[in-house]
């Protein structure tokens, strides 16, 4: 039987004396060694969940376990066993890489040498700059340093709150590669992100919106659950096409996705592609291109959001 590294049971969190509902009855289980993603926009409740799991916040209702320990009773045990990178974590800007690492190693009662093999892979990339102050590092390097700091005591569970927000594409790719390698070392990783395209890099994901879980599954299954056929449509003037298509009674949804529009119909047609092309051309659009496509996580997210409303 698989061991559960993190489990939440009906966790609820409110702020302002119950006025703001940040986390709404969330139940979730992360298996040991899993790379699990919490996907959702700002305000979805991701940070609150991380703070509850790191024992920084007390939930208003529900129970939770991390690494087999109860969040409230055994909070000290948990604090020894998790590695945490807060969303706005920015390290000590006036300390060098080396000093930051030494300091955090010390705080966790260990030394860099003790768990060197775990961070070596990441540390090697920033080693040439080890005497540079953290404030003078690029976003990508800061992120690597922060990850090193979170790993320095060899945690069982790694909790990363939006580690890639505000970081450029190149650094984001590198970061996810690092997470994959860490996963191979058996560390359970719970990571949150507002970027839908990063969802497919996780083994399982939870789609969150306004404190609620909309869906928890593997990225593949979430996409498979998409209930309708999805068409990508484009023409010379995409914006005009968007307006025209939305006015059609048969069209259920129509959103811009990159250079295409993603369209679903109220009732799936066998010849949906032909129908759409026909409709578009009748409205006077030129260079119309229609194809049946696989939905992305973002398509699913929008769909689920609309269903919730």
């Amino acid at each position: 039987m698989e061991k559960i590294a993190v489990s939440l049971n009906h966790i609820t969190k409110t702020y302002d004396k119950g006025k703001v509902l940040a986390v709404d009855d969330v139940s979730l289980q992360v298996k040991q060694g899993e790379l699990f993603g919490l996907i959702g926009p700002d305000g979805a409740g991701k940070t609150s969940i991380f703070r509850i799991l790191t024992t920084l916040l007390l939930a208003n209702g529900g129970t939770a376990n991390v690494a087999g320990y109860d969040l409230v009773k055994d909070f000290r045990e948990i604090r020894n066993r998790v590695g945490y990178m807060p969303g706005k974590f920015s390290l000590y800007q006036d300390l060098t890489i080396q000093e930051n690492l030494d300091f955090f190693a010390n705080v966790f009662g260990t030394s860099m040498a003790q768990n060197y093999e775990l961070i070596q892979d990441i540390y090697d990339q920033i080693k040439p700059f080890k005497d540079r102050r953290a404030g003078k590092l690029s976003g990508g390097m800061k992120q690597k340093l922060a990850l090193c700091c979170a790993l320095i005591h060899k945690p069982e569970v790694l909790l990363l709150d939006e580690p890639t927000t505000g970081v450029d594409v190149v650094s984001r790719k590198e970061f996810w590669d690092m997470l994959k390698r860490l996963k191979q070392q058996g560390i359970t990783i719970l990571v949150s992100t507002p970027y839908m395209d990063e969802a497919k890099l996780c083994e399982r994901i939870a789609l969150m919106q306004q404190g609620r879980l909309m869906s928890v599954n593997t990225p593949d299954n979430i996409v498979k659950d998409f209930p309708a056929k999805l068409y990508a449509v484009k023409s010379k003037n995409v914006y005009a096409l968007l307006i025209d298509l939305r006015q059609l009674a048969e069209v259920q949804s129509c959103y811009a996705f990159g250079e295409f529009l993603h369209v679903t119909l109220k009732s799936d047609k066998v010849d949906g592609e032909d129908w759409l092309r026909h409709v578009a051309e009748r409205k006077g659009h030129e260079q119309v291109l229609v194809k049946l496509i696989e939905p992305s996580i973002e398509d699913s997210f929008i769909r689920l959001m609309n269903e919730e409303e």
Partner: peptide, 13 residues
């Protein structure tokens, strides 16, 4: 402000 306090609190320190 820097978020380091969160990490310190989560540490065994």
């Amino acid at each position: 402000e820097m978020g380091t306090m969160e990490v310190l609190l989560v540490s065994p320190f």
